[in-house]
Amino acid sequence: MSVLVDQHTRVMVQGITGREGLFHTRQMIAYGTQVVAGVTPGKGGEWADSVPVFDTCKLAVEATAANCALIFVPARFAADAMLEAADAGLPLIVCISEGVPVQDMMLVRPYLDKCGARLIGPNCPGLLTPGGAKVGIIPGHIASVGTVGVVARSGTLTYEVLHALKQAGLGTSTCVGIGGDPVNGTSFLDVLKLFEDDPLTEKVVLIGEIGGRDEEDAAAYIANNYGKPVAAFIAGQSAPAGKRMGHAGAIVEGGAGTASEKIAALKAAGVRVARHPEELPALLA
C-alpha cells in the first residue's frame, strides 16, 4: 500500500488549462490516476480532454467530490490557489508551483493548518504511489511497486534515487516530494511518521539537502526508537556557505544547516548515509 495517495484519490487540478497543467494531467491519467476535475477561473464549463473544468474549487468539489488539490498555477497566484483549495475543504493540497514568496507562505501555512488541510510543497514534484496514483510531475516509469518509502526535498535528485532503486530491483511504496522552500507544508518528520504507520512500507529513504533544520529534526525523531530502517543522502557537501543553491531554502546561513551537520545527526541516529545517490540501494540491503 502507500501513504497519502492511492487509486482512490480523486484529484482536482488547479491551472489545468495551462501548458504544464494539461501536460501533467495527461501523464497522470495515462498512469491511472483519477483526475476528476480541473479549475481555471473564467473557463468553467469547458473540458480539458475528458476532465470537466470549473471556475472555483468549491464548484469543482460539489460536482465531483474531489479530495486532493494539485496546483500548477503561476507563482503569483499560488498562495491564493492554496487558500481557495483549503477553503473548499480539500484535505490534501499539493502545490507544484515554485517561487511563492516566503512571507505569503507564513500566512498560508497557519491558515491551512486551521482548516485541517495537509499541504505538500510548494516547489515540489508531488507524490507517486507506484501502481496506485501519480499526483504531480514525478515520471511514473522510473519507479516500481515495492516497500521502500521515499521522502525528498528536491525533484530530479529524487528521480535519480527512484531510478537507482528500480535498477537494483527495489520498489517504492510511496515517494513524497516535500519541496525545497524555507516555509512549506509537510516536513520530513511528518512523512517519517506516516511511513512508520504504513504496514506496507518496510524501509525508508530520506533525501535531504543543505539549509534549515528539517533533517536534524527528522534525525532526532529517528534516534528515539524509529521502527523502520532508514537510509539517507544529503546533497550540498561541496556547497559554500552564504550561496543559495537554486532552491530558495538551500543555503547555509550563519554556519547552520551544513551537509556535514545533517549527516552527523543522521548517523548518530543510526541512519545509513550514502556518499552519493547510487549507493543508496546497497545501504537498504
Binding site: A152, R153, S154, G155, T156, L157, T158, Y159, E160, G180, I207, E209, I210, F233, A235, G236, Q237, S238, A239, M245, G246, H247, A250, A259, H276, P277
Partner: peptide
C-alpha cells in the same frame, strides 16, 4: 538544484 548539488558532491 538538488541533482546539481549531488553532482558537485
Amino acid at each position: 538544484a538538488g541533482l546539481a548539488m549531488a553532482t558537485m558532491d
